[in-house]
């Protein structure tokens, strides 16, 4: 459910973009997805393929997914570490005072498109 609504939000952004730039067709969409964004990439691709058939602007489009690594910062020892591997607790000093630097993004990086 969540993946499909993300697809709908992307489609809305691309519709606006197509209108502003007078685009007729979108060939590919490159999406950057953070490792801990909560988006399941396999399922997301399925949602995309299902949705694009109903949406003329995107019907021939190819989805390119890039993963952005998740990095956490520790306020205790001021070091960075891999979020997926170690979780919320700092592997260096054991502190719980940590926060995510990157990894929960979902960004439309670029598209390939044809003009009208």
């Amino acid at each position: 459910m969540h993946e499909l609504s993300v697809v709908l939000h992307i489609a809305k952004t691309l519709d606006e973009l197509a209108e502003e730039n007078r685009l007729s067709r979108i060939g590919s969409v490159t999406l950057q997805v953070g490792e801990v964004s909560g988006i399941m990439t396999d399922y997301f691709t399925e949602c995309w393929d299902y949705f694009k058939k109903k949406h003329p602007l995107l019907s021939d489009s190819r989805l390119k997914l890039e993963t952005l690594p998740a990095v956490t910062f520790c306020e205790g020892c001021r070091q960075e570490y891999e979020t997926v591997r170690y979780g919320r607790i700092c592997p260096y000093c054991g502190s719980e005072r940590t926060y995510l630097l990157t990894g929960n993004e979902c960004i439309i990086k670029e598209i390939e498109a044809e003009d009208q």
């Binding site: 939000h9 730039n21 999406l31 979902c106 960004i107 670029e110 390939e112 498109a113 044809e114």
Partner: peptide
Amino acid sequence: MRVIELHRSVTESND
């Protein structure tokens, strides 16, 4: 076919 760089968060239009 031309490339358009967006670097736009998915939630931006909703925001």
